[in-house]
Design a protein around this nucleic acid. Structure first.
Ligand SMILES: NC(=O)c1ccc[n+]([C@@H]2O[C@H](COP(=O)([O-])OP(=O)(O)OC[C@H]3O[C@@H](n4cnc5c(N)ncnc54)[C@H](O)[C@@H]3O)[C@@H](O)[C@H]2O)c1
Ligand SMILES: NC(=O)c1ccc[n+]([C@@H]2O[C@H](COP(=O)([O-])OP(=O)(O)OC[C@H]3O[C@@H](n4cnc5c(N)ncnc54)[C@H](O)[C@@H]3O)[C@@H](O)[C@H]2O)c1
Lengths: 212, 212
DNA sequence: CTTGCCATGTGAATTTTTTAACATGGCTCT
DNA sequence: AGAGCCATGTTAAAAAATTCACATGGCAAG
């Protein structure tokens, strides 16, 4: 098949496939059918084949998918078979947790600079990274080849942080703060909402309690 | 309209509406039209009216929605107009950030107990909460009326943590570890995947770079 | 080399979700 | 009290996503 418009939900599932495939690989599985993978991901097997078909043909008919090869193919399809340099803005509880979490690095998302406007934090080091004032964002972004921005400031500072990032010529933003931000239309923004999941859970549990 | 099956995407959007409405309220807006709210949330206005229609009629024709009232109505619809007691398993970087993040409490998701299997951590206090061995989960869950579990252990411990939670009679789980878990079908699980968003961003940026 | 097997890849059918269109009914102004 | 206004709630249409069903083609065994 190849190209055309790709559903956002497909991207989300590809992330799940990678997660499950990597765990399979660790357990020594090297070939898997769409049926079995589907089972492990709690989706329909056609769904998997359809999702993959957007990007190419990665399986072997009558056999299945070679796990390592499939991981590589999916990563290439998503554009994550390379390093993405990131800037983190807001070194508080969450920002610190992210900085300390080396899975980001391992997956190719390297935090190359950390910014905070708190004078008590500026100049301090964290995980070998100096915390810098956001006014230096533009310089540092150029200097260090930063393409993505991660916002972990309080909600009422998110727009300001976004402005800094846009001004620095960043290409995409992940926003962990619970606020919508306005940026030029060519810059994609991903919102991470921790409450979304809790709400959904509460809703399902509440609903479930009526069915009995 | 009322009831029938409600799309998962609707729940996700309701979380966004709440976020935006609360920010609007803070700015002193007390009435808003679906058109304007849609704009602030980057969705279609019919979408908002449709989403709300699943749960009831919350607006006033010819006028719009009273912001405070709508927030209350949505929260009631989702079952989050009450307190949900939660247990946290895995007090590492992320678990600590969550414990220190009082927005959870403010939104009614109160972490009532924290568990970790690291002997160095057991017995220590964090945010006024004693860190306890997961073997005590069952007792504590009963004692403290805990209904939801939050998993922030490493991926290869997620299933073990889930087993503890299920055994303790928990009603729903949010899993921050990058691994699928198996639980009885009546227990909903929400997966929070930090990489999902980064992948999506990388993909959009990569794609965008071809369009020019 | 040929045959049979079996999971992929894909076009068609179905289901779900989103968008558009408009009738409805509350509010305000006269 | 009545008329006009206007954004909601709802029904119908359109679009999109998921699932089904099967032809296709690689592999292994004979
Ligand atoms: N901690 C969590 O577990 C958690 C969970 C979900 C969402 N969040 C959200 O993530 C964000 C951060 O949470 P947190 O707990 O780390 O808060 P925090 O208060 O610990 O950290 C915020 C940091 O941002 C810095 N900051 C403020 N304005 C800034 C600016 N304009 N530029 C640069 N830095 C700035 C502050 O100095 C502080 O260090 C919040 O929006 C919060 O709602 C956090
Ligand atoms: N830190 C982040 O920003 C971040 C981001 C995305 C995802 N995650 C995921 O969240 C999880 C936690 O990340 P982290 O950075 O906090 O890791 P971490 O290693 O700092 O913390 C893990 C904690 O879990 C405890 N633990 C291990 N096995 C346990 C068990 N069976 N029962 C109870 N506790 C147990 C450990 O003692 C440790 O304290 C990981 O799965 C990670 O991939 C973290």
């Amino acid at each position: 098949m190849k190209s055309e418009h790709i559903p956002k939900a497909t991207i989300g599932r590809l992330a799940v496939y990678i997660q499950v495939l990597e765990n399979l690989l660790r357990d020594g599985t090297d070939v898997i059918s769409s049926e079995k993978l589907a089972n492990a991901c709690s989706v329909n097997s056609s769904q998997i084949r359809k999702d993959l078909a957007y990007f190419g043909e990665f399986g072997v008919r009558g056999v299945g998918y070679y796990v390592q090869e499939l991981i590589t193919s999916i990563k290439h399809s998503l554009g994550i078979d390379r390093v993405w340099n990131c800037a983190l803005i807001g070194v508080g509880n969450l920002g610190t947790a992210l900085l300390r979490h080396h899975d980001f690095e391992r997956r190719g998302f390297v935090i190359k600079a950390a910014f905070d406007c708190d004078p008590d934090k500026i100049g301090k080091e964290l995980e070998g990274m100096e915390i810098v004032c956001p006014t230096h964002l533009k310089n540092q972004a150029k200097e260090r080849g930063i393409e993505l921005g991660i916002i972990t400031t309080p909600a009422d500072r998110a727009q300001r942080a976004a402005n800094h990032l846009v001004d620095a010529g960043i290409k995409g933003i992940v926003n962990y703060a619970p606020a919508r931000i306005n940026v030029p239309p060519h810059i994609p923004v991903e919102y991470v909402d921790f409450f979304d999941h809790l709400y959904s859970l509460a809703f399902q549990v509440t609903l479930g309690s009526f069915e009995e």
